[in-house]
Design a protein around this nucleic acid. Sequence first.
DNA 1: TATTGTTATACTCTATAACTATA
DNA 2: TATAGTTATAGAGTATAACAATA
Lengths: 144, 144
Amino acid sequence: MERATEAWAIIHSLVVARRHRIPEVAAELGITPGDVFALLSLLAEEPKPMRDLAEAWRCDASNVTWQVDRLEERGFVERRSVEADRRVKQVALTPSGLEAQARVLAFMHVPPDELLNLGPELLDQLIGVLSRIDPGRQPDCRPT
Amino acid sequence: MERATEAWAIIHSLVVARRHRIPEVAAELGITPGDVFALLSLLAEEPKPMRDLAEAWRCDASNVTWQVDRLEERGFVERRSVEADRRVKQVALTPSGLEAQARVLAFMHVPPDELLNLGPELLDQLIGVLSRIDPGRQPDCRPT
DNA sequence: TATTGTTATACTCTATAACTATA
DNA sequence: TATAGTTATAGAGTATAACAATA
C-alpha cells in the first residue's frame, strides 16, 4: 500500500470509530444532527450566500432555505441582504450561534482514547508532522 | 490546547473536508449512501445479529430490517438463522458484498492531497506514529 | 414474561419543479 | 433571459408502536 494511503486508512478509521458523537452532541445541545453539520461548516467563516452553502453542503438550494430557517428559529444565524445584488442573502452566525458552534467543537475535539494512549512523546511527533499539513482551501463541504 | 486534542483537531478537519466522498462513491457504485455506511461497518467482521447492528448503527431495529432488506436485494448480504436461538438472524456478507465493500474502501482510502503533499519523509514519520495506535475494540458504530 | 425481528404507520429530511424578485 | 431564493409537493430515510415467533 502506498504510504499516503496507509496513513489515510488509519486516520480514516479513527474518525469512523467516532461518528456516533454527531447524534450525541446534537442530543446534548438540543438540536438536530443537521444543525450540528451546518454549525460546523460555518466555522470561523465569513457570511456566505445561500447559493454557496448549497454547493458546500452538496444539497439542493431548497434544503438550504429549510436548514437556515431552522437555525434562524433557534437564533443561531441571521439572513443579511446584500446591497450589491439584492437577490442574494448571506447567512451569518449570531453571537448565540458562535457559542453553540463552540460547544459543538468542544465535543467534537475531545480526542479518542487511541490518541491519548499514544503518550506525550508520540503525540509530539504526530503534531510535528500534522502541523506541516497545508490545509489548502477551506473545507467546502458539509462536515462530519 | 492539549496535545491529543490538537492532533485530533487536525485529523478531524482532514476527514471533514472529505465527507463529500460518501455520496460520490455511492453514486459510482449505484448504491445509496446508507448502503455504503452499512458495507463499511460490516468490514472484516463476522456475521452479526440484526440486534447488534441496530446498536452499532445507533438506529431502530426496524431500520436494520429495512437496510438489510435492501442489501439482500442487491445480493450483498444474506440472513442466517442461528440454531442456538432461533429468534436471531445473523447478517453475513456474500462474496458479492465483499467485492462491493472492497470497491467502497478503495474509494474511501484514496488519500487527500494534503497528505500526498507531505512528501515521503514526513509520511514515513506519520505512519511510524499512527502504526503505534492501538485500535482497541473494533469500531462499533456506523462509519463515515 | 422477555426478547428478536417484522410490519404498519407517521415523522423528518431531501430533492424536483414551479414561482418571485431581482439582474 | 438568467440567477438567488422560496414555496409546494413528492420521495427517501428513520423512528414509534403493535405484532408474531421463540426463549
